[in-house]
Design a protein around this nucleic acid. Structure first.
Lengths: 195, 195
DNA sequence: TATGATACGGAACCATGGTTCCGGTTGTCA
DNA sequence: TGACAACCGGAACCATGGTTCCGTATCATA
């Protein structure tokens, strides 16, 4: 008898597995080598042919885009979780930045690829990006209200700082120049305290 | 009679002029488009053929290297001038950072190309780089002694911050994402004040 | 102003790395 | 287990952008 029509069947197991392998390999490759990690290398790491990479992601940009989407989703969820937890607002804000920084550091190159290359990359994830900003904005608002951070702080200031920090992290991770981003973060946090 | 032997004659005037044009065009191109500005485009801006670019600078990296060298020299001289000026050490340190930041902002991509791409770029300018660090170190030492900045601040912290700021500036200049680096600088300066 | 060394322009060359294509393999369902 | 759709591997293809080459134009000197 004829097999089930395409629309009713789900993706083959090996395809699903390969997709995951590719994503993980790509993440690692970009983290180590920055934006110009090569597809060939990613395929090799995933123990997969280049053709397979291209079946799952039509272009390199699409692959990068998916990685960024995953990353941003995680960041947004972490921000919302922090909001839900409650507790001292000033401390919530500070510990949030520390945690978020730690997560970004794991593959900082990705974050950079979002804003440092071209604005095209931004387009598909813009809504997600807004959601992150919204959650962070709320964290800031609460801390301001509690009077533990300076009153003139804006979300954009935090965004700017985190982007700068990301650049530092990426360079450090690739070993091009040593940077101590944790110290940097603490200096900044001190600067953000209410006078 | 035969013309003067090569060793005694100096470079032709048009060659000297072209060299300058190329450097200026390259500076502008990199500032606008970042590290992957194209030689063809630089040549066009300088109203010169690609061949001419290559006669003056054997490779793209050599051209970039020369731009970085010029930039670093200017930064070093500015730091030393600030040291020579004297005045209140804390204020000297802060105004130095503000001025230096302003200068870097003019073509931030260059600064990034020094540390964000590959460490190879660092090699030829390492001594110059050390001289900058030395001068900045002295500025910091004086400010510490005067008790106007936090005692645990190191040159590397300033270096790290300026690199991060440079990344921000470059992205902002290329219009990929708006960043207010001046605000960022002021926040950091506040964080660096003695507690 | 004549002369030859020096410098110029830009078409052609070539390496790199993203993308396509297709013969062969594998998973899934009856 | 048979049959077919979905999937896989990787050689070949092609666009991009750095680099070379050489015939021509320009500058500086006698």
């Amino acid at each position: 008898m004829a097999p089930m029509p395409a629309a009713m069947r789900s993706t083959r197991a090996d395809a699903r597995r390969n997709r995951e392998r590719i994503l993980e390999a790509a993440r690692a490759a970009f983290a180590e080598q920055g934006p110009d990690a090569q597809i060939d290398d990613i395929a090799r790491r995933a123990e997969v042919g280049v053709g397979t990479v291209y079946r799952h992601f039509p272009t390199k940009d699409a692959l990068i885009g998916e990685l960024i989407r995953l990353k941003l989703t995680a960041l947004r969820d972490r921000a919302r979780r922090k909001l839900a937890e409650g507790g001292d607002p000033g401390e919530a804000f500070r510990s949030f930045l520390r945690e978020q920084a730690g997560v970004i550091a794991k593959d900082a190159a990705l974050q950079q690829m979002l804003w440092a290359e071209t604005k095209e990359a931004m387009v598909p994830v813009a809504p997600l990006y807004d959601e992150v900003n919204e959650a962070v904005g709320e964290l800031i608002a609460r801390a301001k209200e509690a009077g533990t951070i300076r009153a003139d702080l804006e979300v954009d200031d935090v965004r700017t700082f985190m982007c700068g920090l990301g650049a530092i992290m990426a360079a450090d991770a690739r070993g091009v120049m040593p940077f101590d981003w944790r110290r940097q973060l603490e200096f900044m946090l001190d600067g953000l305290r209410a006078p």
